[in-house]
Design a protein around this nucleic acid. Structure first.
Lengths: 219, 219
DNA sequence: CGTGCGCCAACGGTTGACATTGGGCATCGA
DNA sequence: TCGATGCCCAATGTCAACCGTTGGCGCACG
């Protein structure tokens, strides 16, 4: 049986829940919904033009991603990060990406991996001409690729769950500070290390990169 | 302001959604809901005596925990793990717990941490007399404590999200195989390493423990 | 001035309904 | 007989309206 056209084209219209999820995630990580802001189900469901039930499913998901924090009686508000939490998030991030780097180094055939990573770096280069948001976007893309290319679904899933928190951290510190860590050179070093297959070097490179980023964010 | 009695006692009755979540999680990780089994909302909502809406919130959460996999048109079924996925899960697990070990080693005041870990080990000792399930339970408790005691909420959260998958891995391989890795001595070594504050030793110890466990599970 | 009472906002949960979509089965034609 | 056609149904996605509960808040009253 042939896959449907939409599936082949990757154009399947997302469910309302998924749309709401994306919309809310973007609103939060872009600061349109300020940290600490209390969310009211009825308000949101009206804004997004979806029913409360559908909305609640999306909210649960955002809660699990750590973008929302639950107060007493299920009261939800946009999570507010402090410096320690940002460091904590980046510590977990570093652990995951270290694993990614090590895994990639151990792959027998890394050719296509290296190629993909170079493409991601080219995209970052191109984004230098764009807005701050574009630069953040291409950076996230690169790091997500690291996890994705390992072929470890669980790793990718964990990273995706953390992505919202990472974006919040960057937003919290201010986009300017956030992008200041995203030197293309640094990322080239990471790819080079992976290319050589030196796992400990790759891990060290990426760890230092992320540690520096965290330091910079909370400075 | 005083916290309410129920809060103090930690006895707040869980919401129906949370109850359903626990019930389903247990049903899956205990094998009562066989891997690959297709789940029908209306059936489950009747079994659990809750409405479809509430059930769907719980299902979404289980999906994010990796216990359920979504087929076409939102069709949910109990996730089916193969050997590679188990290894992948344990690789992520090891990354998280390595971070936990390192973090604990770097804590200036580890006395209460060591104490808590010793209690967890005592519980494992006691569970030697109990059922296989008891032993698994006390083991999970120990490892969760590792993450919790770091004080890194994000780390604990990530571990919790992975816990379901870990339990599934153990169930998949058979409880006997699962518990065979849970030697109390091994765990004592981990605590000892943390006690000395030797981060690299602690990481090495826990990593070897988990690698061996994964090997054993898929063997 | 303080206290108690009642209103109201917001959440947890339910019910019943409807559209959509694909699978399965039976029917029909070559 | 076998494949194509088309209908029915199961299951999900979504909605609207509703109820009970619970705290917060403000007002009236002693």
């Amino acid at each position: 049986m042939a896959a449907s056209a939409v599936t082949l084209l990757g154009l399947e219209k997302k469910s309302l829940r998924e749309q709401a999820l994306s919309a809310l995630r973007t609103a939060i990580t872009s600061g349109k919904l300020a940290p600490g802001r209390h969310l009211v189900e009825s308000e949101l469901s009206e804004m997004l033009q979806i029913s409360r039930g559908t909305l609640r499913e999306a909210l649960r998901q955002l809660e699990q991603e750590g973008l929302l924090s639950a107060g007493p009686r299920g009261r939800l508000s946009v999570r507010n990060l402090d410096a320690k939490e940002i460091r904590d998030i980046y510590a977990v991030r570093a652990a995951l990406e270290s694993l990614a780097a090590r895994t990639l180094c151990e792959l027998p055939d890394r050719a296509h991996v290296i190629e993909s990573l170079h493409e991601a770096i080219d995209a970052m280069d191109a984004a230098l001409e764009g807005s701050l948001e574009d630069r953040v976007e291409s950076d996230m893309e690169f790091h997500r690729s690291l996890c994705q290319l390992t072929g470890n679904e669980t790793l990718l899933h964990s990273w995706n769950s953390l992505e919202g928190s990472i974006r919040m951290s960057i937003m919290f510190a201010g986009l300017e500070k956030g992008v200041s860590n995203m030197s293309v050179e640094r990322h080239r070093d990471i790819v080079t290390a992976i290319e050589t297959g030196d796992a400990s070097l790759a891990r060290k490179t990426i760890r230092e990169h992320l540690d520096a980023a965290a330091d910079n964010l909370v400075a």
